[in-house]
């Protein structure tokens, strides 16, 4: 085992190999590796962002749903209220109408009674005249006694 020129030859070839590797092999490979790791990182980040967006959208959707439910409930409540109101109004109307009709009917009845009384009174006076004529046997001057008769009629 002797040391000789091989030592130096080996060192030179080693240096050349290292230089070549440093110049033409290492940079492209390591650049590609870095680029890929960057790509992967970007992809992961995008995925994260997307899932975050999704979460946000879901939250928004559920909020909108909740709001619309609330709105619908409000609308239904309003409608109910309105219906009740209308029923009440109608009831009042009906009561008022009934009352008015009754009053009108009563007034008519009273009027009829008055009219009947008038008629009766007139007929009573005629009857009284006739009765008095029969009793007195003479015609009573209507003009002369009308005052008395009218007084009588009034008293009736």
């Amino acid at each position: 085992m002797n040391l000789n020129l091989t030592l130096i030859g080996q060192a030179i070839s080693f240096a050349i190999f290292v230089w070549f590797c440093m110049k033409y092999v290492w940079p492209p490979v390591i650049a590609a590796l870095e680029e890929r790791s960057k790509k992967i990182a970007d992809g992961l980040e995008a995925a994260n962002r997307a899932s975050r967006d999704l979460e946000l959208a879901q939250e928004q959707a559920s909020q909108i749903l909740r709001e619309s439910k609330d709105n619908a409930a409000e609308i239904i409540e309003q409608a109910n209220k309105r219906a009740n109101q209308m029923i009440d109004e109608a009831k009042e109307q009906v009561i008022a109408d009934g009352k008015r009709l009754r009053e009108a009917a009563q007034a008519e009845i009273e009027q009829d009674v008055m009219r009947a009384k008038e008629a009766l009174r007139a007929q009573v006076s005629v009857l009284a005249f006739a009765g008095a004529e029969k009793i007195l046997g003479a015609t009573i001057d209507e003009k002369a006694h009308s005052e008395i008769v009218e007084q009588l009629a009034k008293e009736l």
Binding site: T6, I8, A11
Partner: peptide, 11 residues
Amino acid sequence: DLNATLGMSLS
């Protein structure tokens, strides 16, 4: 060959 290894290690 010791020359080879020593050549590298001396570098």
